[in-house]
Design a protein around this nucleic acid. Structure first.
Lengths: 150, 150
DNA sequence: GTGCATGCAAAGTCTTTGCAGGGAA
DNA sequence: TTCCCTGCAAAGACTTTGCATGCAC
């Protein structure tokens, strides 16, 4: 954890930005909720618990900063707000696969990268230099299927 | 074209809705711009050209209606607004692959469905009943790559 | 002292809702 | 007449911006 924070600090420093205490709070919240896909407001509420004098604008500005430095990614599940997740190092964000249950809203992460072949093919065919991708699969999760069948 | 409109009319009728003239105008705009991924406002502006007395609210309400009946799909390219595209019949919307150029914003459609294998695997592994998917690939298009290399 | 960081409130953008008028069956 | 459809304006949800203060170096 400390290692990660130090890495982020260095990244920001390289761009002439500081990891202030507020920014660190925000970073910690994101780290501790890696699997949760928090919205800006959810981050804000969690940060407030440990640093009550932080403003919502700061959260937005910090998230934007983190996005700029590829410290986090934003995703959109179609519910009208952006959600954010920390980029685990080493993967370059190349594992953004989510199963979204259209009944209960649950989001299941699929962490393997299953698209290598496909990317190679598409990239060649369209002369397109791929930087990143997002795959969202909509459907019904196990629990909801069971509920329906009862 | 007329065939498609008649199909839509029937779909709506089955749900006790009518294909009014305004709705038909909106549908036509969507049909004539299948490849454009229009936003609500863009639809509104195009509709206004042929039916100047249509309100923006009606466009939103109609798009919502069409979504409900799976006549169109909505996509989000991360620019803060939803975009809509007509669902070509027969494919069940299973061809939503887009290459998004992060430099010029161009969107290239990839119309084959390349995810069958992957879906089968994921579906089994997580007991997840797949209904639909969206794949967005971010990167740099041919033209922008050329510009950079100049 | 200088300059970025920040809280607060205001403004902005996209979308939805309330309401009363209008039209088709 | 009845009930859905619609325009307009207002409200709502999320995000960004302006500005003056504050803090670190």
């Amino acid at each position: 954890m400390k290692r990660v924070i130090a890495d982020v600090e260095e990244k920001l420093r390289a761009g002439e930005y500081k990891l202030t205490s507020r920014r660190e709070h925000i970073l910690r919240v994101l780290l501790e909720n890696k699997d949760k896909h928090l919205s800006a407001e959810e981050v804000y509420n969690l940060v407030k618990k440990r640093a009550p004098d932080v403003g919502l604008a700061t959260v937005y500005r910090t998230l934007e900063l983190f996005l700029l430095f590829d410290i986090i990614h934003s995703i959109d599940f179609g519910d009208g707000r952006k959600r954010y997740e920390f980029c685990s190092s080493g993967t370059d964000g190349h594992h953004h696969h989510h199963l979204i249950c259209t009944r209960c809203g649950k989001i299941i992460e699929v962490n393997e990268d299953l698209l290598e072949d496909l990317e190679t093919r598409v990239s060649k065919e369209h002369d397109f230099k791929i930087e990143n991708h997002q795959l969202k699969i909509f459907g019904t999760c196990r629990e909801c299927t069971e509920k329906i069948n009862k």
